[in-house]
Amino acid sequence: MVKNILRSRGNLSRAERSRKFWDSFMYWCFSLCGLSAIAAVCGIAAYMVLAGTPAINEIGLFHFLLGSRWEPTAPQPAFGVLPMILTSVAGTALSVLASVLVGTLTAVFLEELAPNRLRQAAQATAALMAGLPSVVYGLVGATLLVPLVGKAENALFRGSSSHIFTGGANLLSASILLTVMILPTAIQVGGISLRAVPRELREASLALGADRTETAFKVLIPAARPGIVTGAVLGTGRAMGEAMAVMMVSGNAVNFPLPFHSVRFLTTGIVTEMGYSSGLHRKALFSIGLALFVWILATDLILEALVQREGGGQSA
């Protein structure tokens, strides 16, 4: 009996020791995983700064960010990325606004008004569209969307002697394509945040005599706002980083962003010229990468703060 107790006590302490060992082992394992993620981000940031600054030093920050001419191979080369920065801002803003607007309204319709079967079909389609590779969007855009926009452009600028005709490959096409690409995310996130609105809010509104449309616009959408803003953040990320699809429909000449201008985004600027560039030109492409990196980081932080504030307002 005593022997048994002693043995069991010994077993217990051994099991405990081994559990403690595994505990601390796994603790370090997970810490290492977490640290490697941070290290990757820091490594990329450090590399972007190291690779991107020499050209900026050589060109001058002012000439680089605010120069309006991008002529990297001219006898007197110019490396101004302002048109590309503005194009990225305009294209992203247009497409995020449009997709959040359409996406939220679609989500309201699907959640509140649509028959069950239609809602399920639409949600399945949205999930499928969110997973399509961007090149597929680019191909469809280049073969269907661009000729249509081209026809509109020809009709609009008929006889113009100052408009450079793009055949439909311009900022408008790129923005429409980006809108379609972000739309599924906006619908999905909008739907999730509408579903998360407490039932009591909806019931109270209906009980007070509001109809379903009033309830949707005056109660549900305001209550779901943090979720909708999150959707916008996700969409912004995808729109800013997209290169492949945009390149196939944007025309790709460096111009200031007007709807029917052939334009080049920051991302496509890098992709287009990476193949042949050399010397300062190549370094300048890394600087574009740095500009894009800084800008995405800044946008992320600002939108994050916005979401935090929205969330705080919600709970208060």
């Binding site: 793009t166 490959a169 790709n252 000449a253 080049r264 287009t272």
Partner: peptide
């Protein structure tokens, strides 16, 4: 040159 589209 004034290009309507530039391709790589």
């Amino acid at each position: 040159c004034l290009y309507g589209q530039e391709k790589d």
